[in-house]
Design a protein around this nucleic acid. Sequence first.
DNA 1: AGTGATAATGATAATCATTTTCATTATAAT
DNA 2: ATTATAATGAAAATGATTATCATTATCACT
Lengths: 153, 153
Amino acid sequence: MTSQIHPSKYEAWLDSLQNGGYRLTAPRKAIVAIIVNSSRALDAVEIFDLGRVEHPRLGLVTVYRTLEKLDELGLVQRVHQPDGCNMYLRAPEGHEHLLLCKSCGQMEYFSGDDLSELIEQISQRSGYQVLEHWLQLFGLCGSCQVVTAELDV
Amino acid sequence: MTSQIHPSKYEAWLDSLQNGGYRLTAPRKAIVAIIVNSSRALDAVEIFDLGRVEHPRLGLVTVYRTLEKLDELGLVQRVHQPDGCNMYLRAPEGHEHLLLCKSCGQMEYFSGDDLSELIEQISQRSGYQVLEHWLQLFGLCGSCQVVTAELDV
DNA sequence: AGTGATAATGATAATCATTTTCATTATAAT
DNA sequence: ATTATAATGAAAATGATTATCATTATCACT
């Protein structure tokens, strides 16, 4: 859940909101704090529940509206998974792709993929002009591998 | 929309349904014919509308139920796109990935990606055991590039 | 610090995609 | 042909998300 703390990122997101012409409000601060500190993708209701701890009057609609603005500012992204596409996670910084644990939901970004050769090849073959790509890896994180191994014994 | 005709694939899908223990019915045949012959992903309502041409008594619920079964049999897959994840397309044959046109929605599969090196690298760095990957390319198909070029003049 | 324009909020209702329920119909095995 | 039962379609229910609108809070300007 809420593992590491990112005070600087929290501040940066609030700055982004403000620079984007949006006001800084208590509900928005609570929502930002939750997403910034989560290493898992969260859906609107989870954010709503967590947010009410900090700001009990928070409404679910405000969660959706804030997610919309954070998405527009490029700070969060919707995560696509086999069982649904209604969870949000902080957006990647630069060119990064998602690596996610099928067991515990933990997610992290990785960089360093070089698909240029592949993409060039596909362009040639298909006649498409390739503009962007989605890459996502699914697997088991370190701790979930251990758990799985124990169960196998 | 409905471009090429795949009679053999149509038969094969009906066989799959039957071998899966499902009955062959008029609504199912109509739905299979539509998906097999489409080079675009379609949502449930589009399939419903197209299906009613062939089988006017078709119900939307049957479309959902048939999609569910075709998905379970590995014949169709849900397509994930920036603007939504409620469209279906025939599933890839073997290890193939999607290439889709941002302009007209035309889709095709490509194969020949070798991500083993990248995946090995990411495994090492992250400690994850990588089990599967999603790769999807977005761009402009041949004809849409022409259209775009004309508009630019 | 105080004020006011207006952006943001939260409650409620509406919408859209999907699923459930259930009485009726059609398939396929006998 | 008969029959068990899978499949269908209509209607209602559900879950996620969006729109509406009266109230509240923020922040630029005194």
